[in-house]
């Protein structure tokens, strides 16, 4: 489904917090041959509602169709396409990097520059936490690769419009 006018879109879905709803969303997308690049799900302030942040890439026409199809799902309250908005997007990544006495200072200063946190120190590793948008995360991971990344886990991206307010509660 890749083609030249491929777009990356960030969608925020307000859904009923019920079993099976996530399966409906992902099933709808995968059933049409799309890959979900990133996904994150959590309850909102209203415990009956969950927020799903999804990132997909495809031609705009396909994405328009997907958005309409998502809106049609009975358990989906709202589909917000944040792509058009001015929005912030963050993910959290945990990395375990190999260390030795010679490079610890350098790694610590990298961590500081990227506003990371060292969560755990062992004789041979640092376990660190970073948050940021995709680009920042990619940059720090490339830099850390030089030292040897032992393990890395990451959440999906979550996103919010900078100025616009979307009600996440039931009326």
């Amino acid at each position: 489904m890749e083609n030249k006018n491929t777009q990356r879109r960030t969608l925020s879905l307000l859904v009923d917090n019920e079993p099976g709803v996530l399966a409906r969303v992902t099933g709808l997308i995968s059933g049409r041959g799309f890959n979900i690049e990133s996904l994150s799900v959590a309850e909102t302030r209203d415990p009956q509602i969950s927020l799903i942040t999804i990132i997909i890439s495809s031609s705009s026409q396909f994405i328009e169709q997907i958005i309409k199809q998502l809106r049609k799902l009975i358990n989906i309250i709202k589909v917000i396409d944040l792509t058009e908005d001015d929005y912030v997007e963050k993910q959290l990544v945990l990395v375990k990097v190999k260390t030795n006495p010679a490079n610890r200072t350098e790694i610590r200063s990298l961590c500081e520059i990227f506003k990371g946190k060292i969560l755990d120190v062992s004789p041979k590793t640092y376990t660190m936490e970073f948050t940021g948008n995709e680009k920042k995360i990619r940059n720090i991971l490339t830099l850390l690769d030089e030292f040897g990344v032992e393990e890395q886990v990451s959440t999906g991206l979550t996103a919010m419009s900078r100025t616009r307010v979307y009600k996440h509660e039931r009326k």
Binding site: P19, G20, A23, R24, G27, L28, G31, I74
Partner: peptide, 14 residues
Amino acid sequence: IVGITRSITKHNYL
């Protein structure tokens, strides 16, 4: 059956 018929129904319930 809810899983099986998810994509071929308008909606389904358990």
